[in-house]
Design a protein around this nucleic acid. Structure first.
Length: 828
DNA sequence: GCAAGGTC
């Protein structure tokens, strides 16, 4: 029996399909899919199934000096036990093993890890290696016809990276965390990729903070020919002989303005026309896909998660790729043909009608995977969420664009003279739309300038002088950060977006575009001073050079890692002396990130704190002398914003809760608002109204949340939830069943008020919906939909114990699929 | 409990 090992289940299934000509059967071994046909079995790993770590005696942070980690052993342990078990079970019975992991460095290492697991249980079996750059009939067949050996040097290069990353990352992370006494979940992390990325963000912030704006002026006027008006801008020649529009001196600007205002007309000095070809974009690699999705409003992580779903469902190719050149065996014409009978049919036909079909190419041609493009498998639109469809359409249209013709612009430049001052107008017109016809994501707005001739006298009206200021540099957006990381060579196609998420999670950045916290600045400062290499992209470039040397046989893994450890030794020589100083600086910064402002009782400082039960609240730094506190909302992690409240001089607080994130505002304002707001009685309490005379009232709590609750609270705890935002109106309409008024919520910025109705009915419907949604999740509705449900604030079955989920399913069984679809439509 | 890299 021959055993084929791939990097992921999807690849295993497709390779089995090709080699078996569709005849493979699927079974599971130790819960892992195995594809089997004519004497062959194929199993997919899940990337690395073993992980590198220190032996257990190093695991207590307090017992081990961080510097000891530098020369500690590292060991590899299984991290995916079920897959390791399945692999070894099959390997025992194998008489030949073929490693078919991805064709890149990490794939070689994953292959070598599989090889070692095979060897543990079978020291005889031959192990071969096949390499192919896309899972297509031709490539796979020819690779298997001519197998090769594992490249152990290349795998060792990857292993050196693992060791160096672990040793540097863990030792420095522990050092900073211990020195700041930040253990547990709020440790202070550093690493070869995350820290240079963080420095990028911090450096930009430093530029912004150091920025001093300059005043300048710009002048415009309207020109007119044959009663068509167009705008022209004043310009002059600066000291270097360059054309300039900004006037840096107010007197000069006023003088030019005076001339333009008095001129009344301008004489055309020159007219120049040129046409410019606007070539279609290159095929999508991961970074460019993230960028394009970003311009549609998707965060990097969200874009990748949607792409992942579309890939797993079989609609697009593998979304993690550096490649921007379609492989030879992609038949673009055939793929276009697959869209003929879809909503993209007209566009596909028009592309097929072109004289030639030559796809664009980017600069990167790699062996890992093809660029991201749609597969011939066209999705049923109803099965995708709106977001998924939008992203899918982007991928389809990008593919279309890469085989479309170029666009052509015509530029018209007119220069005119108004009493010795120069005016210019630049017009542009799209004369051939080309790829823009099928790829509507780029700006194609035109700027109209009429046909004029040299010597024409144009009427000049409405001269304008605009006072402006230079602007600070812009922060990096997520996609620009990822592009910059790529150009610096840090991170990989699969990890860059995760690195950004890590920086958010660690409390280093907040907002979008991301801004560094005080802690982030302190960590970067500390690293710059004592371990410069770890915040520098140079660490990666040196590592890359070393890895190339290992792969070529010029250096050994032992040499490279030993060299790196010696460097880290020297870093620790310096660090250890400054431990207290560093710790103090980090602690101050952490405190600054939690500081709200002056305590209204004692004038000391209000901080965000955590109670023993884990909930957050606002407390005074002067505790226990000052016992002032304010509550915070119970959902999410609090984040102190830059914005402050005018009344109390306190920073506003934002609650981070994934997609339910909201701004709580100034906690003192929220508390005062709650104290001032009168409870509005709307009816009798259904629990205790008859016996005790309890009444239901609309209440506002100090945490900012609102509810309908019993006036006898805390004796009676009956309550119904209300939305956090919007004005709640009590109408004259009454619910027959519960004898309560219908409520309406009016939210600023929303055109339509939300007719919430009777609060009891509303809550019952809400609970019902929650159950139905649970059922949908149970019915195998995709992760994207589940995520959406979570966004709607609904706990999904994914979070429930399986017994609970089954009980829930039983409770609502007898529901037709149609009903489910209807509910889903409502939820959307 | 530390990193970065796979994959889900």
């Amino acid at each position: 029996m021959e055993l084929i090992v791939t990097e992921k289940n999807n690849a295993a299934r497709r390779i089995a399909d090709i080699l078996s000509e569709g005849g493979a059967t699927t079974s599971t071994t130790a819960g892992v899919n195995v594809y089997e046909w004519g004497g062959r079995r194929c199993i997919g790993l899940s990337g690395h199934v073993v992980g590198m770590d220190f032996p257990p005696e190093y695991s207590d942070w307090r017992d081990v000096e961080p510097a000891e980690l530098v020369h500690a052993d590292v060991v590899k342990e299984p991290t995916q036990e079920d897959i390791v078990n399945a692999l070894q079970r099959l390997a025992r019975e194998a008489d030949n093993v073929v490693i078919a992991t991805d064709y890149d460095r990490e794939g070689e290492l994953i292959g070598k890890e599989a090889y070692e697991l095979v060897r543990e249980v079978n020291d005889e079996v031959p192990v071969q290696r096949v390499r192919f750059s896309s899972i297509t009939e031709n490539e796979v067949r020819s690779a298997f016809a001519d197998p090769d050996d594992i490249d152990f040097d290349l795998a060792a290069a990857g292993e050196a990276r693992q060791i160096i990353d672990l040793v540097w990352g863990a030792a420095l992370t522990r050092f900073l965390s211990l020195s700041a006494r930040q253990m547990g979940e709020d440790f202070i992390s550093v690493g070869r990729v995350q820290s240079p990325t963080l420095k990028l963000i911090v450096d930009k912030e430093r530029e912004i903070e150091a920025f001093e704006p300059d005043d300048y002026w710009e002048l415009f006027a309207d020109l007119e020919k044959n009663s068509t008006e167009f705008e022209a801008q004043y310009f002059y020649e600066d000291e270097d002989g360059n054309e300039a529009e900004r006037v840096w001196n107010e007197d000069d600007a006023e003088a030019a303005f005076e001339t333009l205002r008095e001129a009344g007309e301008a004489v055309v000095q020159s007219v120049s026309r040129r046409t410019r070809s606007d070539d279609p974009p290159a095929p999508f690699n991961t970074t460019q896909f993230i960028r394009a999705a970003g311009s549609l409003g998707y965060s990097a992580g969200r874009a990748m998660s949607i792409a992942e779903d579309l890939y797993t469902a079989g609609y697009i190719t593998y979304p993690r790729t550096d490649n921007t050149v379609y492989p030879d065996d992609l038949d673009e014409r055939e793929l276009l043909g697959e869209f003929a009978n879809t909503v993209f049919g007209d566009d596909a036909e028009s592309l097929l009608d072109q004289d030639s079909l030559s796809p664009t190419e980017g600069d990167e041609e790699t062996t890992d995977h093809p660029p991201i493009h749609p597969t011939p498998d066209f999705p049923d639109r109803n099965k995708l969420s709106e977001d998924e469809w939008e992203v899918y359409e982007l991928v389809v249209r990008r593919f279309f664009a890469t085989v479309a013709e170029n666009a052509v612009w015509e530029h018209l430049r007119v220069v005119a003279d108004a009493d010795g001052e120069s005016l210019k107008a630049n017009g542009k017109r799209l004369v051939k739309a080309g790829y823009h016809e099928v790829y509507p994501y780029f700006n194609t707005s035109e700027n109209f300038v009429p046909d004029v001739d040299e010597g024409d006298e144009l009427a000049l009206s409405d001269a304008r002088l605009e006072a402006k200021q230079t602007q600070p540099p812009r922060r990096y957006g997520q996609s620009r950060l990822i592009e910059t990381m790529e150009s610096m060579g840090i991170g990989t196609k699969s990890t860059r977006h995760n690195t950004l998420e890590k920086l958010y999670d660690r409390g280093y950045i907040e907002g979008d575009p991301p801004r560094p916290t005080t802690l982030a600045k302190a960590v970067v400062e500390a690293a710059e001073e004592y371990a410069d290499l770890v915040v520098s992209e140079q660490m990666t470039s040196e590592l890359e050079a070393d890895m190339t040397a290992i792969a070529d046989g010029g250096k050994t893994l032992a040499e490279v890692t030993e060299e790196s450890r010696e460097m880290l030794d020297r870093v620790f020589d310096e660090l250890t002396d400054s431990r207290n100083e560093i710790g103090e600086h980090l602690r101050d910064s952490l405190k600054a990130d939690k500081t709200l402002g002056p305590c209204p009782d004692c004038g000391d400082t209000l901080l965000v704190r955590r109670s023993r039960t884990g909930s957050y609240f606002v407390g005074c730094d002067g505790y226990p002398e000052c016992r002032f506190t304010l509550p915070l909302p119970s959902t999410g992690e609090p984040l102190v914003l830059e914005e402050t409240c005018d009344e109390h001089d306190l920073h506003e607080v934002k609650m981070l809760a994934g997609r339910d994130t909201f701004v709580h505002g100034c906690p003192l304002c929220a508390a005062e608002e709650a104290d001032e707001s009168e409870d509005r009685v709307i009816g009798a309490c259904p629990d205790c109204g008859d016996e005790e005379g309890g009444e239901l009232a609309i209440k506002q709590l100090q945490t900012g949340s609102r509810l309908v609750g019993c006036t006898r609270y805390p004796d009676c705890e009956y309550s119904l939830p209300l939305p956090r935002r919007g004005d709640i109106e009590v109408t004259d309409e009454y619910c027959d069943e519960h004898d309560l008024p219908e409520l309406v919520v009016r939210d600023e910025g929303e055109d339509e008020p939300w007719e919430l109705g009777c609060p009891i009915c509303n809550y019952e419907e809400y609970q019902q919906r929650q159950r139905q949604r649970g059922l949908e999740a149970l019915n195998g509705i995709g992760p994207a939909t589940a995520e959406k449900l979570e966004a709607a604030g609904v706990e999904t079955v994914g979070d429930m114990a399986s017994a609970d989920a089954e009980a829930l399913a039983e409770e609502v069984s007898g529901v037709s699929e149609e009903n489910v679809r209807e509910w889903q439509a409502q939820a959307d």
